[in-house]
Design a protein around this nucleic acid. Structure first.
Lengths: 263, 263
DNA sequence: GTTAGTGTTCTGCTGTGCCGAACATCGTTC
DNA sequence: GAACGATGTTCGGCACAGCAGAACACTAAC
């Protein structure tokens, strides 16, 4: 190969492949993946995949379960994820506040940090109810379909919204998803007025979210959100929940040394 | 080198080093590590460490923060940890039960799986109070100083206790830590009679834990535990909490298809 | 018994990942 | 402001690590 043109000259190929294996296994089926399946996805020879998997098993990143053997995510991933979560100062501050908010509202509550304008959830407190939402941590969510995303955007200049809109293309998740930059900006004006953002089945049918941004000394740092099923939420109840989320976000702002933004 | 004698013949050295870097960064200080610090710990050349770090940054396992740059745990670790936690069926079953138990007792509650006799905590629900314990997930805890560990041991043959005792050497964590296999076995007899295990400042001063094992069709699968500060826990209160933890563990057993073991 | 699918082991060649040295930037200190 | 001692970054060249491929062992299906 004529040497890779990019800055990827310093990439270590075997490590890249190893990380691919970790991702495959972590995102794979609950019962685990076979070596053959991993080999096929990697596109390498069986022996190469075997060496990588063995190395990852030794490191605890991957667990071999008999019979098969099939490969599942290892305990080291749990440990590292927990350590990484704790290393994010925001998470430590948010957690007790999320607990209180979940208790107060009966909903699943989450905290997202602002990552270049995108919301990335880093903490979650599940609702006591039986309903569990698919709310993965550590991934960039769509800014225009999540209440946390819109709460963050509302605190940033309009230019950012336009930039993210071109980057993501505003994918349509449900029939209610905002389709245009104009609609989105109009919604953000409402958010600023109210002090909290709504996601009314804009990301998933039947799912309702309320989000509010929090701030540190440098501006918007992230957002809290509360998630529940739509059902029969009265306008009064929405306003009540909005105020609760708003108040919780203000508590975070104060702990971060920023200024709360309750209108 | 005369070719490694062990089964580690299939180890990929560069991947091992990359995983070392991840561990270093994840366990490192909150402000992050510099490349030089990583290089020193690895014992490789600077350029090698640089290539590994760059590869990990691209994969999201490590995050470069200016100025410095300093390297911190990346969001991908959060994502993978969350995914790994969800892939453990036990965690999904335990979580709502831990929530209820935490709510009922006001304590921090956790669930451990039985890993070759050792307790490995995989889920945690923090207490609403301000007190936060250092309770990392995904690591093997000492069997003889944790209530979950003793609850598990009590459900296994005495031979296992003896084996683990020789493996760990029964390290003394506090003045109250059980020192001998005899003391431990005597305590385990009490656990079996009561149905729950106690850790009365045996792992950390001022910390009190109550644990109870749960079972699947194949026998003991793990244990739940509730953690609080010792303070003025009356015997009545301990019995009350013990019954609550015991009942919660029974709920887990039933969901796992095992038989509850309330005495 | 045969086949098709697993996982594991081995060997030899090639290319990659390593080192070392040079270069670029910061801050400090004199 | 020059000189220093730290950093992080880039480069080239060589040895050997890591790859592919083939052979082997084992299971389940039919």
């Amino acid at each position: 190969m004529i040497a890779n043109r990019r800055g990827d000259r310093y990439r270590v190929a075997s490590v890249v492949r190893a990380l691919q294996v970790v991702t495959l296994v972590a995102d794979g089926p609950l019962e685990g993946l076979t070596l053959s399946a991993i080999t096929r996805s990697l596109g390498t020879s069986k022996s190469t995949a075997y060496a990588l998997v063995r190395t990852l098993v030794e490191g605890g990143y991957v667990r071999a379960v008999d019979p098969g053997p099939r490969y599942q995510p290892g305990m080291e991933l749990v440990r590292l994820g927990d350590a990484a979560t704790r290393s994010i100062p925001l998470g430590r501050i948010c957690h007790p506040i999320l607990l209180d908010l979940s208790r107060e509202t009966g909903l699943t509550t989450r905290a997202a940090i602002c990552d270049d304008g995108y919301p990335v959830f880093v903490e979650r407190v599940d609702s006591p109810g039986a309903i569990r939402f698919h709310t993965p941590l550590g991934v960039r969510e769509l800014p225009h379909t999540s209440s946390a995303g819109k709460a963050i955007l509302a605190a940033l200049p309009a230019g950012v919204t336009e930039r993210l809109a071109t980057e993501t293309g505003l994918p349509e998740r449900t029939a209610k998803t905002l389709q245009t930059v104009g609609d989105l900006l109009a919604d953000l004006a409402d958010v600023r007025r109210r002090g909290y953002a709504l996601d009314d089945e804009e990301d998933a049918p039947g799912v309702f979210c309320i989000g509010a941004a929090f701030f540190d000394h440098g501006g918007v740092a992230g957002a809290l959100s509360a998630t529940g099923i739509k059902l029969d939420l009265s306008p009064d109840r929405v306003a009540e929940l909005g105020a609760a989320v708003r108040a919780a976000a203000d508590r975070v702002s104060i702990e971060l040394g920023g200024t709360p933004r309750t209108p």
